[in-house]
Each structure stands twice: as structure tokens, then as C-alpha cells.
């Protein structure tokens, strides 16, 4: 296996390197990917020049992510959701006596106590800030880096932090299994629901433009912008829920008790 691995690796490396001299130089603005080819203007040029007219979102990445390639993003969310369900399916165990391989006692030594006070206090200060900040990231994705995914991960991380600072059951007390599974589904439902709403209004899937008919006081372009916010919220829901779900299952071997 070792030799095979080495040979495969070297072979792949040589193959990949063999094409490198053929590449456009690094950072070349006129490379095919950046500048297009002859009479085929590159897609990315279109994104840069026209995104604002099309969607009024200054963050081009967000616009492309949630609108032009929103279909991709929806499935990206589905991937996350699938991962959450997968981990549930693989690890979650309901029955059996609690016979953990490690004593699951909360660390109760004097030092532990001491540590918990310090860490606990820090976390108490920091967790609300993180959560607030996560919401800001989700909401402000149109204008600065960020968006549903990043915000969702941060929000999920804040719950993980709760679990780390206290223990898993404390975090589960705030965000129970039933809740996070539901929230994960709801996130995708929101996303796909936006798409389906467009279909219901006789446009193509995820063609947000038409939603200005049902959104108050918007024009087609702003409808795109607002809908993007909507789907980002959906993404954030799913990501939050699933990130925490993954942690919860991994850290407790699927028992969702004390955990790590």
C-alpha cells in the first residue's frame, strides 16, 4: 500500500504539474477565467459589472451565491442538512444502559471548579455577543463579507461554546434535539419555499423577481435583494442547527447526554 500510494501520488503530481506551464500566469486579469476568451466574455466579468444593476447587492459574492447560482447554494444547504441527518443516522443511539467508557462526571476538582468559574464567566460575557454578532453577519451579508453560512456557523459555534463551557446537556437545554432537527428542516423549507413561491407565481424556480408582487413596497430588483436575505436566513437556520447537531452527536457518541 505504501508503494502504491507513493506511486499514485507522484503520478498525480506529475500529471498536475505537467499542465502548470500551460496555465495563464497567476494573477493575470486577462486569463480566460477572469477576462474571457476572444468574443466570449467571461461570466465573472458579467457578474462584476452587472450584479448591482440586477440585484442591488454590493457584495458580488453574496449575489452570485444566493441568486445567480442560488440553485447550487440550495443544494449546498442540502449537503449540510444531509450531513446532519447522516450523523444522526450513524451515531445516535437511543437505548442501552449508560455505560460510558469514561466516567462522565463533570470535572469537580477544586481546580476544575476554579476553571469553570473563569471560563464560565468569560463565556457568559462572550456568548451573547457571539450570537448577536452572528445575526449581524447573516443580515449584513449584502454589504460585507458574510451571509447565511458564515453566520450560521458562528451561531452554531456559540452553542458549541455553551456546551464546552458548561456541558452538553446545558446546551441541549437551550437547543434540544427536536428543535435543532426541526430548525434544520425549516431552513431548507424556507429556501426551497422561496423557490417554490416563484414557481407558484409562474416563473422559474428561484426567480425571485416575481416576488415583488407579494412583497409590499418593492420593485423586481429589490425583491431579488430581499429574497436573498430571506434565503440567507434559511441557510443560517440549517447551518446553525446542523453544526450543533454534529457536535452534539460527535461529542456524546450519539447519546446526547453529558458528552465531551
Amino acid at each position: 500500500m505504501k508503494w502504491f500510494g507513493l506511486i499514485a501520488t507522484v503520478f498525480t503530481g506529475i500529471l498536475l504539474l505537467s499542465a502548470v506551464p500551460d496555465f495563464a500566469a497567476f494573477g493575470d486579469p486577462d486569463s480566460p477565467a477572469n477576462g474571457g476568451l476572444g468574443d466570449h466574455p467571461s461570466v465573472s466579468q458579467y457578474y462584476i459589472t452587472d450584479t448591482y444593476t440586477d440585484t442591488k447587492v454590493p457584495n458580488i459574492v453574496t449575489a452570485v451565491l444566493a441568486d445567480y447560482r442560488g440553485y447550487d447554494t440550495m443544494f449546498e444547504t442540502v449537503v449540510i442538512f444531509a450531513a446532519g441527518i447522516a450523523i444522526f443516522a450513524i451515531l445516535r443511539s437511543f437505548s442501552g444502559p449508560v455505560a460510558p467508557s469514561h466516567p462522565t462526571a463533570i470535572d469537580t476538582s477544586v481546580e476544575g471548579d476554579h476553571q469553570r468559574i473563569i471560563i464560565g464567566t468569560t463565556c457568559r460575557v462572550i456568548i451573547p455577543v457571539i450570537q448577536l454578532f452572528a445575526l449581524y453577519v447573516v443580515a449584513h451579508g449584502h454589504h460585507s463579507p458574510g451571509g447565511g453560512f458564515q453566520g450560521g456557523v458562528i451561531l452554531g459555534a456559540s452553542f458549541i461554546l455553551v456546551a464546552l463551557a458548561k456541558d452538553l446537556s446545558a446546551a441541549l437545554g437551550r437547543f434540544s434535539e427536536k428543535r435543532y432537527l426541526a430548525l434544520g428542516s425549516v431552513g431548507i423549507l424556507i429556501y426551497a419555499g422561496f423557490g417554490l413561491l416563484c414557481v407558484a407565481l409562474e416563473r422559474n424556480f428561484l426567480d425571485y423577481e416575481i416576488l415583488h408582487r407579494i412583497m409590499p413596497a418593492t420593485d423586481p430588483i429589490m425583491a431579488r435583494s430581499h429574497s436573498m436575505l430571506g434565503v440567507e436566513v434559511g441557510v443560517a437556520f440549517t447551518v446553525t442547527a446542523i453544526m450543533f447537531a454534529i457536535y452534539a452527536n460527535l461529542s456524546s457518541k450519539g447519546r446526547l447526554e453529558q458528552g465531551f
Binding site: L65, V137, P145, G146, F149, Q150, V153, A157, I246, G259
Partner: peptide, 22 residues
């Protein structure tokens, strides 16, 4: 930036923790 933000959130926030938990 967006990729970096994602990587920051994932790398610092969750993926290390997942691995440690395992």
C-alpha cells in the same frame, strides 16, 4: 473575503472541535 470568512468560521469554530470530540 467570503471564502476566508467561511474558513475562519469553520476552521476556528467547528472543525477542530469536531475532531477533538472524536
Amino acid at each position: 473575503v467570503d471564502v476566508a470568512f467561511t474558513e475562519a468560521a469553520v476552521g476556528a469554530g467547528v472543525s477542530t472541535v469536531f475532531m477533538i470530540a472524536t
